[in-house]
């Protein structure tokens, strides 16, 4: 009878080696970006494993010799129990289309699929709850969407939104909800609302977990370290989810993105969007607004903030955003 145990990858070298070997045997990348790892053991032999990274279940493998022994269920249960201890009742999983049925039978629902990857979720609040929330915010007429991190909201963002707002009855601006940025999700949402006050046809919304999140596009938050091949796969899933679920809910026909001369990951993402949209949605790429001959970027703003370079900040930020940042950073000091 196999027994469930936690694997402490950083402490127990022998089990960590067995874990890596099992993943390799199952043709999975040995991905050390995990919070908690569980294993099913027969004596000292590792037969199956699953890990958690935030709300994402990953690195799931069952030894080919031990398949059809229902080793997966206790692993997924353990992952859920772990999440539940933190008050989370919701998890995502990435898998190959060929293994999707195993997870469906454990209560997972598919959200979106690319050719090589399927993203599934289980628990609540789920995608249906998010779509329900979006329906309440829906406005009539033509609609476009922009997804942004706004870390922080720059004159460049404002220019992009203005371009979209001049062409459509409504522009839905989705602000990333993931907490991986210098400014908190709440601050970024507030700044976008503040910065688009002059545009009455703009609706500012959170992305929750369903656009460019740690679940749909984790590479976004690794930018300079991300593996571009992996990023491409994730971008395809993220784009598929937008095309299949988000856009129809709000009758969005066009998505606007800023041209991306600087970050290769964002460039990969824009390419994946264009490919996934073909035939169903328009993708409008707007050239970056320039300041002193360089494209305005949030990275430049953060640099100027670090150097307390007021002159540059005034050039890159709307006055009300500059004020917002000053007021809110003074609390921290």
């Amino acid at each position: 009878m196999a027994e469930l145990r936690r694997i402490w990858l950083t402490i127990n070298r022998e089990e960590a080696t067995a874990w890596a070997a099992l993943l390799t045997k199952s043709q999975l990348a040995v991905d050390h970006q995990v919070d908690v790892t569980f294993g099913m053991f027969e004596g000292e032999t590792l037969l199956a494993t699953a890990s958690l990274y935030g709300q994402i279940i990953k690195c799931v493998a069952v030894d080919p010799a031990a398949q059809s022994e229902n080793l997966l269920a206790p692993l997924i249960q353990a992952a859920f129990d772990q999440l539940r201890a933190d008050g989370v009742e919701h998890a995502f999983i990435y898998t190959k289309p060929s293994t999707q049925t195993f997870f469906s039978s454990l209560g997972f629902t598919p959200l979106a699929a690319s050719q090589d990857v399927v993203l599934l979720e289980r628990g609540y609040p789920d995608l249906d709850d998010y779509l329900q929330f979006l329906r309440q915010k829906k406005r009539p007429g033509t609609a476009a969407a922009i997804v942004m991190n706004a870390n922080p909201f720059t004159r460049g963002h404002h220019y992009l939104v203005t371009q979209a707002a001049s062409q459509f009855d409504t522009v839905y601006v989705f602000v990333l909800s993931a907490e991986h940025s210098q400014f908190s999700a709440a601050d970024r949402l507030a700044m976008v609302k503040l910065g688009t006050q002059d545009l009455p046809n703009v609706v500012v919304l959170p992305t929750r977990d369903y656009m460019v999140s740690s679940a749909t596009f984790p590479s976004y938050f690794l930018k300079d370290r991300a593996d571009l091949a992996v990023a491409k796969q994730q971008a395809q899933v993220d784009a598929a989810l937008f095309v299949q679920k988000i856009a129809p809910t709000l009758a969005i026909t066009t998505r606007f993105v800023g041209e991306e001369p600087l970050s290769p990951v964002t460039a990969v993402y824009n390419d994946a969007l264009a490919a996934a949209f073909a035939g169903s949605l328009q993708l409008q790429v707007i050239p970056r607004l320039q300041s002193d001959g360089a494209p305005i970027s949030a990275t430049a703003v953060r640099q100027a903030l670090a150097n307390s370079d007021q002159g540059t900040l005034e050039k890159l930020l709307l006055p009300q955003i500059n004020r917002y940042i000053k007021e809110h950073s003074s609390h921290a000091n």
Partner: peptide, 19 residues
Amino acid sequence: HAASAGTLESSDITITLKP
């Protein structure tokens, strides 16, 4: 609000209730 009970073990059932 949503809540659930049960596990994925054999001979069990996971019930989730949503408003």
